[in-house]
Structure formats: structure tokens, C-alpha cells
Design a protein around this nucleic acid. Structure first.
Lengths: 156, 156
DNA sequence: AGTGAAAAGGCTTTAAC
DNA sequence: GTTAAAGCCTTTTCACT
């Protein structure tokens, strides 16, 4: 799908506030509300916009720490990789899971209550998944940037 | 701030669709729209809800690959760490940046157009930041889980 | 605390340019 | 592909439980 500068501008507004009204979006991008609405519906239908979500403060939910875990598996068969991914997806504390190239097989980011909760999670959840060989963790000391796609560049 | 099961249920609905109407939210959680509205405003004011954002398909924007980069710095002084973080935050392709404990100093996730774009980004952007010593990259082969906070557990 | 109704405002559609 | 206007649905307020 071809996105012009108005589409990108609309996405940028929605990225900052997904509940912005069509009037506000229109004012921000220099259009009236109707074309904005049409463009949004078009992007939703085309799968450019996958959905709208809320940004929740992890600490408010009791998750005081973020841990990044690197995992290697016993086998690299498609079945093992798939099964491991499915098991990870079922753990709510697992925020992100990526199958990666290189020294490790999976990169995972988890939200934990505290260090004891981290230890429990590793022992009772992660190491109970069949196929896991080894893991290596690092605690996040500071978060510097939120996850937002760049809306300038390749298609801008 | 104390969150009860209704608050968590509301967050869950918003996490799946941040543009859900108050009526739909109310129906889903078993309340009328007014208390839902009050609870949402309260959570916004308390910083539990940090904002609402849109989930955009990276491929639609021309970003076909995701790369995870681990970085070590020359110095671990507060100034170097801070300056590096500031420079990272200014690169739109950098989706996430975490200051971490362990073997590496920064963990970064970047969106790239293709392998050439990755090479360009590394050379022209990342390695031009003062203080960088070494980096190690791995390409994401498959993304298994989206970033969503678990809404059961510690406070549920 | 929650409910339900009423007012104010925004969303969605139709039609015209 | 854009603007303007009409009807409808949602948000927001208020009175009551």
C-alpha cells in the first residue's frame, strides 16, 4: 500500500494519541475530518494499522523491574522452535519474544515484580519449558526510548 | 495507586482496543459507562495510563527487518551513558533502548529497510555516536509476542 | 461507591464541488 | 480527492440510589 505524507502525518498523530478526535487529527495534518477518516479506514483495512492500544505504566501494576533474557535451545528443529515460542507466548510476564540469528535462539523481555519474582519466573516457568538449554539474563537499569516506529525515512 | 479487578478489566479491554467506546467497555467489564469513565480518568491522572497509541505494521512503512544490537561503551561514567542514550533517542529507527547490567551496556532494537539499510545505519548513525566501543547484532527471524503488560498476577 | 437519563460534542455518512 | 452539512452515536455531566 502506498502511503503519502498525509497518511504518515495521521499515523504520527495517532501514535502520540490514539484517541485523538478526527477534528484534532485534521487540524494537525492540514485536512478536514472526512479525508482523515477515509485514510484511517483505508489503512485499517490494508493492515497498516493493526490496532490501537494503551500504554500502561509497568510500576503501577507492580512490575518494578524489566529483565532481558537470552535463551539457547537443545535443538534447532522447526518443531522445537515453534513449541518454545508457543510456551513463551502463554506466559503473561513475557512482554516480547524474538527468534533471532546468532549466538542465541530467543531474545525475551520480561516484566518482574522484584528479583525474587524473577528467580521464581525463571525456575517455575522458563526452565519448565521443554527444549531449553541455557539462558543468560540482564536487568534493565534504565529505559531510554519507547517503542514507536519511525514515521520519517524509507517511505517519507 | 490501588487497582481493583474492574480497573484491570478496563485496562485489558483498552489494551486490545484503545478506541473501544465506554458502552462497550462497560458491557465487557460489567459496569455502566459512567464508572468506567471515572476509573479511566482516575488512572490517567495517576499515571497508570500513560497514553494511547497505534500499532502499525512495520513492513507497511518499508521496514522489513528488525535488528537487535548490543553495545559496549568506552566509559561507564554517568555522562557517557547519558549522552549515548540521548543520541540513540534521536535516531528514529531506534525503537527501543535499554541501559542494562551485565556484559553489555545498551540493548537496542532497530527497524531497518533491508540489510544494506542496516549497514548504513550502523556506519552512519550508531558508530558516529562518541563513546561507542563495540557492538554486536542479531537479526530477528520471527516475532512471537507483542509488547503487552500482563494484567493478571501481582495486582490481580 | 454505581445507575440512568439528558446535554454537549464528535463520529460517520451523504451529497455537492 | 476535497469540503460542508445532517443524523447518529459517544462522551460527559448531573441528579438520584
Amino acid at each position: 500500500m502506498n502511503l503519502d505524507k498525509f497518511d504518515l502525518a495521521i499515523l504520527k498523530v495517532l501514535q502520540e494519541n490514539a484517541r485523538a478526535s478526527l477534528n484534532d487529527i485534521g487540524t494537525a495534518v492540514g485536512l478536514s475530518s472526512t479525508p482523515c477518516w477515509n485514510r484511517i479506514k483505508r489503512m485499517e483495512a490494508a493492515g497498516v494499522i493493526r490496532g490501537y492500544t494503551v500504554d500502561i505504566d509497568p510500576a503501577s501494576l507492580g512490575f518494578m523491574d524489566t529483565v532481558i533474557v537470552h535463551v539457547t535451545l537443545e535443538s534447532h528443529s522447526e518443531e522445537t522452535l515453534y513449541e518454545f515460542g508457543r510456551a513463551l507466548a502463554a506466559i503473561p510476564e513475557v512482554l516480547e519474544a524474538f527468534l533471532v540469528s546468532g549466538d542465541y535462539d530467543y531474545y525475551i523481555r520480561i516484566a518482574v515484580r522484584d528479583t525474587r519474582d524473577y528467580e521464581r519466573l525463571l525456575r517455575e516457568q522458563l526452565y519448565r519449558i521443554p527444549g531449553i538449554r541455557h539462558s543468560k539474563s540482564c536487568f534493565v537499569l534504565r529505559r531510554l526510548k519507547e517503542t514507536m516506529l519511525p514515521l520519517t525515512g524509507p517511505v517519507g
